[in-house]
Simulated assay, not measured.
Amino acid sequence: MNAALFPDVIVNGETIPAASIAAEAQNHSAPKDKPGIAWRKAAQALAIRALLLQEARARGLEPDPEEMAPGRVETEDEALIRALLDQALTIAPVTDADVDAEWARDPERYRSAPLWDVSHILCACDPRDAGQTEMAGTRAKAILARLDGSAKGFAAAARESDCGSKASGGHLGQLGPGDTVPEFEAALRALTEGGMTPAPVLSRHGWHIIRLNASAPGQVLPFGTVRPKIAQALEKAAWTRASRDFVETLAKAAQIAGASLDPI
């Protein structure tokens, strides 16, 4: 490991070793060809954690771990940081006027989920098997070529599908967000009503030829329905801003080497 490129981080004299940063880096996303971004994110996260723990101990706080979910209890460090933020942050309560203004800014953002009426043809394979995937892909392309963009023969072609829906012409019924695997849904969202995928789409189940028979966009929800959601979002945003400002205050008074707290 190049110490110049991947140094230890030192926060107010406390050393965070490069090995700890390397382990943390696995929890941060970065382009495959730019591993340094994940490293910088990890170094920043651990530097902030160190700052908060140092401040909590300086204030004489004691950890009191809470159960976060069934079988999931806070670590002592997590409990200390929570106690510190509870003590240090003052969040102004969200008012009715705040919620009204946020709603009025763009009511179109608050919609029910869309519905899609979908048919598909599946050429099943295990994507981890290159040979199997190639053969299934060739088969899917041949079916798609016969269809030539026309929906007229879709139900007949669906008899060759490896999905149980072949008994109903490939019809899957009405689907909403999250009802299918991500690759399928991403392709579905790109289709216009009556459209068909121009090329087979690979998912964990195999190759799909997808047709969007009809769609119903989500409806704008009544204010009374979304009001609690808006209030919760405003509270979360206020807490995020306050915690960021608090960390910036700690950082200005700290001596930090090997990491930057600037946005990455």
Rank of each mutant, 00 (worst) to 15 (best):
A124D: 15
I210W: 05
G224P: 06
Q232F: 07
V201F: 03
R211F: 11
K141D: 15
A233T: 02
K141W: 14
T138W: 05
I209S: 06
G149M: 07
I143S: 00
Q232T: 06
A155C: 06
G164C: 07
G195F: 02
V226D: 05
R146A: 09
G176M: 09
Q219M: 10
A140E: 07
P198D: 10
S165P: 13
T133K: 00
K152M: 03
A142K: 04
L147N: 01
T192A: 09
P222W: 13
P127A: 01
K229S: 06
R146P: 12
E235V: 01
N213W: 03
L147P: 00
A130G: 11
G195L: 07
L147V: 03
V201I: 13
G178N: 11
W207E: 12
A156T: 15
G206M: 13
H208V: 14
I209P: 01
G131H: 09
R146D: 15
A231I: 14
S215G: 11
K152G: 00
A216M: 13
A136F: 03
I121V: 12
D148G: 12
H171L: 04
T138C: 03
G178H: 07
L212P: 00
D179S: 08
E160A: 09
T138L: 07
S150Y: 09
K229L: 11
C163D: 15
A156Y: 00
A167C: 03
L144M: 09
T180M: 11
A187Y: 00
A157C: 04
G178A: 06
T180Q: 12
G170H: 08
A190K: 06
F184P: 07
M135N: 05
A136E: 01
C163H: 15
L202F: 00
T197E: 09
P127Q: 00
E160P: 00
A155K: 15
T133W: 14
R211D: 14
